[in-house]
Amino acid sequence: MAGTGTPVLGRRPPSLRVSAAGWSFVAPFLVVFAFAFIAPVIYSLYLSLFRDQLMGGNQFVGFANYSAAFTDPKFWDGAGRVLLFLAVQVPIMLFVALVAALAIDSGRLFGKRFTRIALFVPYAVPGVVAVLMWGFMYGERIGMVGWLNDAVGSQVLAPFTKEWILVAIGNIVTWEFVGYNMLILYAALRTVPGELYEAAALDGANQWRVISAVKLPALRGALIIATIFSIIGSFQLFNEPSILQSLAPTLISSSYTPNMYAYNLSFTGRQINYAATVAIVMGVLTAVIAYVVQLRGTRRED
């Protein structure tokens, strides 16, 4: 990603070998990339120009699917939901990850190694398992939430309600990825040269000053990467809501997120052409937002 401090495209170490051998190294990747990445994109562009009907068969419809998508409330409803999710969950998660990374890096923690590993372990838990697990615990009758509510004597938590379901999903996602983001940030902190700290110490800078003057600037690149991945992750939101759907069918509609919408369009609704269109529009939207974040991040740096 170009947002990491050095402009990527322009970097050319002086004595690089000009050689076709470069191609031979890149070729294997490019072959699979072309087949499993580029070709599907082109194929779905093609599909998005047709409409296959139960009655009347397949016909060319030009951009009709796109104009349908642009005015489709279900699609925009889902897109709005992931945007909201993105705007709330991602900052919280990254903030927690940042605090954790700084705390672990500060050396002021008892059991630092354990903390680091403990926070990271959820990342290794398959998303499906994580959702099943939290789904069990969210149960108001038989789960931990039910137990808690009984203990307190009132309904303090109600994950499966209209107001809270998105929060409940956000909690699962945060749980899964806080450690992962912490690790990315922590790894970046480890690369800060010791001399910088020594210089700061000589200047008599306190902890907070070191954080704001040395550590945070060093984290900028890593934060941009973490942000972009979180954005992409939010836009792809699928596993959590679709598995929770069986526990809360009326709360999570078949078009709850754009990804679920595309999935249901192609597998339940037999509208593969429209599903391809939705996937394309969503992909473009994600790429644009990721790109904007990246631009903003790098511009301030320069």
Binding site: K162, P249, T250, L251, S253, S254, S255, N264, T268, G269
Partner: peptide, 14 residues
């Protein structure tokens, strides 16, 4: 049937 809960189901919920 797959979109039932999106529509009629909302009446139960709300």
């Amino acid at each position: 049937n797959s979109i039932f809960s999106d529509t009629v189901g909302q009446a139960y919920l709300d």
